[in-house]
Write a protein that binds this DNA or RNA. Structure first.
Lengths: 201, 201
DNA sequence: ATCATATATGCACTTAATTGCATACGTCAA
DNA sequence: TTGACGTATGCAATTAAGTGCATATATGAT
């Protein structure tokens, strides 16, 4: 098997095999979620309490398929857990090999994925329709961003109110919540600006 | 052919055929770009002057393939234009049918696509690696957001400095640039917050 | 001459994402 | 006892997206 070595801009050296590497991002998101708390596919699909669901969304079908793949690659192990009054569940946790796989991926610098935003594309051709149509869509989106912001703020206050400086994992996760709070706040502000703008027409 | 009627939250009625509809988002982005200015695939791939490239990114291969499809569906027409000192180019423009297709799509309320961010996933498992690795990645991203912000600000000043209130198309496009300015500014601020945070470790 | 760069377009192949279905156990209510 | 809902998992098929390669003309530099 061929190996290739990289040096990232900070001088960290890492390597990976050229073949049989899936760069599929969902696998990393699942491993990151399982790293912080072992759980079942169903749990992952529910995007529970401030977890990775907020930074990477996927359907349950994608998640189950990917978990099966990760198990085949020995990046996770599964344990069937019997429950009262509920179907059995398979609880997954990350293996040391899975952690290595994550470490390699984290150290590899990535180019920001380009923006892909339906709403902005709509605005681009907004003059084709009545302003009220655009206004409606803007208000629809505003409501969605408001919901997200409320959720992020709630997580910020309840989960990360009193985190000890030693709890590195939680402090890193806190940063992702902060991103949600900041960006959603700004999205809301932009929506308001855009709504006011369109109302002039 | 079956038809289905919708009423969006603002009371606008619209309909579309159930079959043979591609909801593929790239086609809408290309139509929106061509709507504001007919041009070639090459031009579209260059993401020129404040155009749709900033709100929807794609490779030239995707763009050429999609343009061919759009031509087959009669949503665009192509005209071969001979040039001096350069290969011929095919200039595409949107047909009335293409405009209708865009109008229907614009009027259809869309659910915000879920967030998918590699950097945040990395932070989620940040405790697996040395803080300097995360710091490096944060600074790398900060630079990318700074570039984008500079570009957006430049477009804001040069293209939209003196737009007449009557120029609806340009005023809508101005809103997309404003979104870029606002969100990238906030991304930068978050990067700074995160960098300061990680430097404590 | 040859090489790099810019313009201009496209096919073939592979991988990822989405959609539609299918299954099964349990609770609670009509 | 049927039907709706929540928990829990998954396959099959399709569609979209991404990667790698190929081609051609023209300019300017070495």
């Amino acid at each position: 098997m061929h190996l290739i070595a990289y040096v990232n801009p900070c001088g960290h050296i890492f390597c990976r095999s050229i073949k049989n590497i899936t760069l599929m991002a969902l696998s990393h998101a699942l491993l990151a979620a399982l790293h912080s708390a072992p759980c079942s596919g169903y749990d992952l699909a529910k995007k529970f309490d401030g977890s990775v669901g907020f930074v990477w969304n996927a359907t349950h079908q994608q998640i189950y398929r990917e978990l099966t793949k990760l198990e085949e690659q020995s990046h996770v192990t599964a344990e069937v857990v019997q429950q009262d009054n509920r179907p059995d569940k398979k609880v997954y946790k990350v293996t040391p090999a899975g952690e290595d796989y994550l470490r390699v991926w984290i150290a590899k610098p990535i180019v920001m994925s380009g923006k892909k935003d339906d709403l902005l594309v709509k605005l681009f051709a907004g003059d084709l329709v009545e302003p009220s149509v655009i206004l409606c869509e803007l208000e629809h989106h505003r409501a969605q961003h408001q919901d997200l912001l409320d959720t992020c703020k709630s997580i910020e206050q309840h989960i990360f109110a009193n985190v000890s400086p030693q709890d590195l994992q939680r402090r890193y996760r806190y940063l992702t919540v902060r991103q949600g709070v900041r960006i959603e706040t700004e999205w809301l502000a932009w929506c308001d600006e855009a709504i006011a703008f369109v109302k002039q027409f």
